[in-house]
């Protein structure tokens, strides 16, 4: 096919700026976090070694477990809604022309709104007194108030995330669908394939790669969500929508509990890395199976 990659040790020079930049931004702060996580202080910048105490405390306290549970539930729900919905939207989009590019622009709209503005938009939209959705739902006779009822707060936060991110899944799937050659559809039509058969045997195999990416991206980003729910619910009512990042910021910048916050950061980061690595490995095992396509 193409010329093989050449062995070229000096390529390191080309990568060096990126490595230095990312090392500066990632390694130094990470070391700071590790440093805090094994020390305690009584102020005056005097630190002393406490070993793994903070980690034990974080894992033993119910607080981290609760936030993690809420986080997992949120991420699962968001993935269950956004991936199928985005895929179905992509299947219904026009293939080309001005209508296709108008759809692209409208779908991309929520992706480019600053995250706190996304929160503001939904706050304004959902409030019972001044919001369109909030007052409409109450006018129909359903009792809805996201600032007081935990379930309503959850529905609002999930609806907001679906509003914000389904477009990303839809755009990814759409770009995957565009890579299906027209002759495949013609062949399927000659065979008299049903819509389902076309989807299952022509479109889905081509979508595999983008679906993996969509899944991983949505997993990572929903697991780190902070700004949007913070603006809308502030983590409440009570602790109902306090997800991991919100809890972490409360601990670090609110209570200035550095040791515990650092230990929590590391556990948090490790969970994200582990889950991504697991999915990546499981999904790329499927990749190495013999390909039935050409």
């Amino acid at each position: 096919m193409s010329v093989a990659k050449r062995n070229y040790p000096k390529a390191w020079l080309l990568v060096l700026p990126v490595v230095l930049m990312v090392a500066f931004n990632a390694v130094i702060p990470l070391m700071t976090v590790v440093n805090y996580s094994v020390q305690d202080t009584f102020g005056n910048n005097q630190f002393f070694w406490v070993g793994l105490e903070w980690f034990e405390e974080v894992l033993r306290s119910g607080r981290f477990g609760d936030a993690l549970g809420r986080q997992l539930l949120f991420t699962t729900l968001v993935l269950l809604i956004e991936i199928p919905l985005g895929l179905m939207i992509a299947l219904g989009l026009p293939k080309s022309g001005w209508r296709a590019s108008s759809y692209m622009m409208l779908l991309a709209l929520p992706l480019l709104i600053p995250w706190n503005v996304v929160g503001t938009i939904w706050q304004i939209f959902g409030r019972v007194d001044i919001g369109l959705a909030g007052s409409a739902i109450n006018a129909v006779g359903i009792d809805y108030n996201y600032t007081q009822d935990a379930l309503d707060a959850w529905i609002t936060v999930i609806a907001m995330d679906v509003w914000h991110w389904t477009s990303l899944v839809a755009l990814l799937c759409y770009s995957g669908l565009k890579s299906v050659p027209e002759v495949y559809y013609q062949a399927a039509a000659i065979d008299g394939a049903s819509r389902w058969a076309i989807f299952r045997y022509v479109q889905l195999p081509r979508l595999r790669q983008v679906l993996i990416i969509a899944f991983l991206l949505r997993f990572m980003d929903s697991f780190m969500i902070y700004t949007e729910p913070f603006v809308v619910t502030g983590g409440g009512p009570g602790n109902a929508t306090t997800f991991l990042s919100i809890d972490l910021v409360k601990l670090a910048l609110g209570q200035f509990d550095l040791g515990q916050a650092a230990a929590m950061s590391l556990i948090y980061f490790l969970i994200v890395l582990l889950v991504c690595w697991l999915f990546y490995t499981i999904m790329s095992v499927g990749d190495s199976q013999p390909d039935t396509r050409q």
């Binding site: 990659k5 990632a26 780190m224 910021v249």
Partner: peptide, 29 residues
């Protein structure tokens, strides 16, 4: 274009930073 020492590991190390929750880095930054 090239193969060089540690290229694959480096690529994934770079990507792993995309997975770091900004909340983790706020204070150290």
């Amino acid at each position: 274009r090239y193969r060089f020492l540690g290229d694959k590991h480096l690529f994934f190390w770079l990507l792993s930073n995309r997975m770091a929750p900004p909340a983790v880095f706020a204070l150290p930054f």
